[in-house]
Amino acid sequence: MLLGLDHVTSFYGKTPILKDIGFDLHQGQCLCVLGRNGVGKTTLLRTIMGLTDRMTGDIQMSGANISTAPTHQRAKYGLGYIPQGRQILAKFTVKENILLGTFARSDGLGEVPPLCLSLFPYLAENLEKQAGLLSGGQQQQLAIARALATNPKILLLDEPTEGIQPNIVHEIGQTLRRLNTEFGITLILTEQHIKVARKLGDAFLMMENGRIVARGPIAEMTDELVERHMTI
């Protein structure tokens, strides 16, 4: 088991947003977290990163209990985070943004890892460009490159295809698939596009109101389930 959550309840202020979440994730899996807006998908990823105000329960990563570890230490366990809205540092150059990821590495590499450049040729050609000037799709690529620079075991992707034009959605989907199958990086992604989820994922969690209401291999994600928990 690579990552395991056990009875995790997570709070903003005094309000529990996630309630009693538990799941196991194995090396090389791709887990899709699905649900409508506001059911706690983002909070789930933020809880794994330790960015919520408080949590109870246990989070295990590679056999270590990281429930009480601060965010910067969790990153070093091999969690690469691609947050909602991408949150690249606008005043940094493309290169500096990628280098930011290297602070979470354990091998002390202080350069841009070659993988980041070979996956995203546009970034490789614009390393000195200010990141705030990139388009949405380019920023998403940069956010993925930055997370990859941490040499992650798991990538946490929060709606990676949100607000991105369709042809780039396809491109990002392919990149993620390669990372998962070719490089063996485990993925957790929240997604609103059922198509992307079906194409990429091999397991799913369906959430509603801060709880997991359905789970299983992606093949078991029936239209009926989608209908019940995702249509508005």
């Binding site: 960015l51 070093k76 941490t150």
Partner: peptide, 17 residues
Amino acid sequence: RAVMQNKEMAASFGINA
């Protein structure tokens, strides 16, 4: 400079703010 811009992101990438 990373912490100045976005403390949460800096922490998410291993920086102890």
